[in-house]
Computed example of a mutant assay.
Amino acid sequence: MHGPEVAIAINAIVWPFIAAIVFFYMYFSHRTKIRLALIESGRDASIFRRNAVDKLRSLKHGIVALMAGIGLLFGGFFDAIGMDDDVAYFAGVLLFVGAGLVMFYFYVSRMADVHEQESDIL
């Protein structure tokens, strides 16, 4: 590699890091200014906190992604033992994603029952 090629390679590595640093600086400084303005106006910054619904949504998406990956692995296994490859991957993903959503439903139902019992005690 000679002159211009080295410069291009260095720029390809350096500029994304500089852009990331500038982005994070702007994000956090802007966030701090907003929160300070809220505090000065007498309001609470609790509007920025995530609630339980967001956490459950993230959990659901994580379970679906994990089970889809496992379904793809099993689809490869089904393909290797002789099943048609289109059917094997499709069936594997659908079976495992469906099982993950059912597990999530039972988890949410169980947590709702626990919270209901706790509120009865109090």
Rank of each mutant, 00 (worst) to 15 (best):
G3K: 13
G3V: 07
P4G: 06
P4K: 12
A7N: 11
I8F: 04
A9S: 13
A9R: 09
I10Y: 09
N11V: 04
V14A: 09
W15M: 13
W15V: 12
F17I: 08
I18S: 04
A19T: 07
A19K: 07
A19L: 10
A20Y: 06
I21P: 00
I21D: 06
V22L: 14
V22W: 04
V22D: 01
F24Y: 13
Y25P: 00
M26Q: 08
F28M: 03
S29C: 01
H30C: 02
H30N: 07
R31F: 10
R31I: 01
R31Q: 11
T32N: 14
I34L: 12
R35V: 05
A37R: 10
L38H: 09
L38V: 03
I39K: 15
G42S: 02
R43L: 13
A45D: 15
A45F: 01
A45P: 11
S46V: 11
S46N: 14
I47E: 12
I47P: 00
R49A: 15
N51Q: 01
N51T: 05
A52L: 08
V53I: 14
D54G: 08
R57D: 03
R57N: 05
S58V: 02
K60C: 04
H61D: 07
G62C: 01
I63P: 00
I63A: 09
V64E: 08
A65N: 04
A65V: 08
M67W: 03
A68E: 00
G69F: 13
G69Y: 02
I70D: 00
G71W: 02
G71I: 07
L72G: 10
F74C: 07
A80K: 13
A80H: 13
A80W: 11
I81K: 09
I81T: 12
G82S: 07
D86K: 14
V87L: 15
A88Y: 02
Y89G: 05
F90M: 10
F90V: 12
G92H: 06
V93G: 03
F96Q: 08
G98M: 01
G100K: 01
L101N: 06
V102H: 01
M103D: 06
M103V: 07
M103F: 11
M103G: 05
F104S: 01
Y105H: 08
Y105R: 08
F106I: 09
Y107K: 02
Y107Q: 05
V108N: 08
V108Q: 12
R110W: 12
M111D: 10
M111H: 06
M111N: 10
M111Y: 06
A112R: 15
V114N: 04
H115L: 14
E116Y: 12
E116F: 10
Q117H: 10
Q117C: 01
Q117A: 15
E118H: 04
E118I: 07
S119C: 00
D120W: 08
I121M: 08
L122A: 14
